[in-house]
Write a protein that binds this DNA or RNA. Structure first.
Lengths: 246, 246
DNA sequence: GTAACCTATTCACATGCGTTAGTTTTTCAG
DNA sequence: CTGAAAAACTAACGCATGTGAATAGGTTAC
């Protein structure tokens, strides 16, 4: 059930078999299925734990008073939403499903058990949280400085690599369910311009995007186009000195 | 020395006199002064603790390969930079001073001592970190959805309230040292358009900005203009149930 | 099977903001 | 006080992207 999370955390530190089992167990306690295009948590809700995305895609978003919507991040299998958010009174943004989604509720007690049971797991979860912050900073840069093609290219690079790091990419392709309207809400572009931009990227033979699948025809070209530097994802076993020996 | 941090944390939870002294001590151990417009930490550096801004303003930023720069956040007195970032191998962004700055280096040991010495302090520091994430999300929204006037208004609201929460605002005014070029790097606008935007806001009598001081003439009007909703700053004593009784 | 509705696509036109290239004002070192 | 550099400001013009509106294919509900 939580293979994607374990795979992802192992980019930071090698976990022992027992640690993997502990995560496995935590991720199977309370599992729910949610339909496509539903809210999982809504702005103003009182959170009482964290969510692990087991399957499907979700997004975090927020509406302005006048109806404009900004998606501030995508959540893919292996992602934990709002680790430790139970310190805050209420959610300041919403989380909605893009596809049908399977989530595991991680209660406060479960999380505290995991973290106190293994320093390595605790560190790995903090690593994941720090990377989530870095991703959010990168979105700020993306929206502030990159033009439409660069912005879209960067988003594709990010989500391909994130899925790959969780064992969820196949060769040069991966799932990619957002509609063009959702891509617009994530990139701050109108749907018309998202469409124009995708056409342009297709005719430059950078990507193929159909049937909710993304195929990256030339990853180097795409990364160059996006000025994508993957170091912010910290996927290079930062915590190797903590690796399990068994 | 760390009054601003203590003031800010007390928005979340009331700290005992002993806890306040402990923070005071941690923030006076290693204090340095840095000139205006210098880098405090640079992308690629290996962090070995956290920084507390005691006085002056700094910013976090990142360059794209072609020289475009995005400021991803401002740091004002009382702000901690990169709490727990020592889990990561290297900085994925830089931190530079805008004015002359006084910083206190908080070593890993000092931080761990603070957090293990008081659960309330530990929680307060995590609260601060969660709020920092929420601010980063809000910047994403700001750059993705708001036009120039709204964007600038939102930035002013944020920084006024953040300084106020640290006891660093005076009535309806506060320090505001960024140049128009720096405001452009933060809002994703050209300096020319920053200038146009400020003129517009001045003629609408929303703000006065001169001599590195921001005066907010009509906070309600400014917040309306920005569609600013302060709840993401979580300034409403979320952790009241943990308050010190002494 | 078909109505209702997303989703993708295209076109024409409008505009917010960028760019280039200045000038003026302020700051600050000496 | 003076000169040089930084910061603020202005004007003209162009383009990337938004808006509104229309079409068509695909999907889902009944």
């Amino acid at each position: 059930m939580s293979q994607a999370l374990i795979r992802k955390l192992q980019n930071f530190v090698k976990l022992s078999a027992a640690e993997q089992r502990a995560i496995e167990r935590a991720g199977s306690e309370r599992v729910r299925r949610i339909g496509a295009h539903e809210d999982i948590l809504r702005e103003g809700d009182k959170p009482n734990g964290a969510l692990l995305i087991v399957d499907g895609w979700a997004c975090r978003y927020k509406y302005l008073e006048d109806g404009r919507r900004q998606i501030v991040g995508f959540s893919v299998p292996g992602d934990i939403c709002d680790l430790n958010v139970f310190l805050l009174k209420e959610m300041d943004h919403s989380i909605g499903s893009l596809t049908e989604v399977v989530v595991a509720d991680l209660s406060r007690e479960t999380l505290e058990g995991l973290m106190s049971g293994s320093t390595r797991i605790a560190h790995a979860l903090w690593w994941d949280n720090l990377v989530a912050n870095a991703i959010q900073r990168e979105w700020t840069i993306n929206l502030g400085q990159r033009d439409a093609v660069e912005r879209m290219s960067h988003l594709f690079c990010e989500l391909f690599l994130r899925q790959k790091s969780a064992g969820r990419a196949q060769g040069n392709s991966c799932d990619f369910p957002p509609t063009q309207a959702e891509l617009g809400d994530a990139t701050g572009l109108s749907t018309v311009h998202v469409n124009r931009t995708l056409q342009q990227m297709r005719s430059a033979d950078l990507i193929t995007l159909q049937n909710k699948r993304l195929v990256i025809n030339d990853i180097d070209a795409l990364m160059r186009q996006a000025m994508f530097n993957p170091s912010y994802l910290h996927l290079d076993r930062d915590g190797a000195h903590l690796d399990a020996n068994d």
